[in-house]
């Protein structure tokens, strides 16, 4: 091995990030090369000094307090936490102990009523989610590996279903982020596609054609022999179709005709 080949391997050796073969090769070289051995020792020492230097940086106390307050506020705003802290307050008050039984019954009834409440409209909610993503109100955590994203999304719903596999590369769109969301008590997988100035969000969930919005327009694809349902709300367009027991809804601000073409997998010619 030449010294020039050993340089990057030395870095990997310092960080213990070499394969067994690479490690054996570079260690064999170091056994014979004083210069590279010295380089290895210098790089180890530099890494140690950098780590020590990092420890000299401390979070300013006022920033720590600000972040802590913001996190505490979020926790206190959740519904479940409000209920739990109310129960804790009751439990802590000796005079109210006889009322615990009534409080528990009240909670059970409230939970039953909450579960029985009319379900939110899925199409309206997903259009709002898309708008929130595009406007930046909801930040995207971008990923580099589409296959890994798909795996993580599938895992998020315990492999009960997978996000619909869409190849939008011919439309110059690629998956850039994704997450799982609960809508109307149903698990929905969200995949965001971006490219060429456009954003299309794909929502996948278990369902049937009855999930199509009542005001949607149906289009029957004679090639695929499936129905596509197109709908719009406040300038945002959606197209739904079913693949087995999985529903896929594509949402975007591109024209309904273009979105339908994307859903059908066929380039649109205006």
């Amino acid at each position: 091995m030449h010294c020039s080949e050993a340089q990057e391997l030395i870095t990997g050796l310092v960080d213990d990030e070499l394969t067994a073969i690479e490690k054996a090769a570079v260690e064999e070289h170091l056994a014979e090369c004083h210069d590279c051995t010295a380089q290895f020792e210098r790089e180890m020492a530099l890494k140690r000094d950098i780590r020590l230097a990092a420890r000299a940086i401390a979070v300013p106390q006022d920033l720590r307090e600000q972040i802590a307050k913001r996190g505490a506020k979020l926790e206190s705003d959740t519904w479940a936490t409000r209920v739990i802290s109310s129960v804790r307050e009751w439990l802590a008050t000796a005079r109210l102990r006889p009322i615990y039984g009534f409080a528990v019954v009240a909670l059970v009834v409230a939970a039953w009523l909450f579960q029985s409440r009319p379900r939110e409209d899925i199409p309206t909610r997903i259009l709002a989610i898309h708008e929130s993503l595009v406007s930046g109100k909801t930040a995207l955590v971008r990923v580099n590996d589409a296959a890994q994203l798909r795996q993580e999304l599938t895992r998020a719903v315990e492999s009960r279903f997978e996000p619909v596999a869409l190849d939008l590369s011919k439309f110059k769109l690629h998956p850039v982020a994704g997450f799982a969301e609960k809508i109307a008590n149903r698990d929905v997988l969200v995949t965001v596609y971006e490219g060429d100035g456009s954003t299309i969000t794909c929502f996948t969930f278990l369902g049937g054609e009855a999930d199509a919005p009542q005001d949607s327009e149906r289009f029957f694809d004679p090639d695929k022999r499936i129905n596509f349902y197109g709908f719009s709300r406040a300038g945002v367009n959606g197209v739904m179709h079913r693949e087995g027991n999985v529903i896929c809804i594509l949402v975007s601000k591109i024209s309904p005709a273009e979105l339908l073409a994307v859903a059908r997998g066929k380039p649109h010619h205006a």
Partner: peptide
């Protein structure tokens, strides 16, 4: 750091 926490709090559902 402040922006990171703001975004994390707004996107916590994306964290597995």
């Amino acid at each position: 750091v402040q922006e990171t926490y703001a975004r994390a709090l707004g996107s916590y559902r994306q964290f597995t």
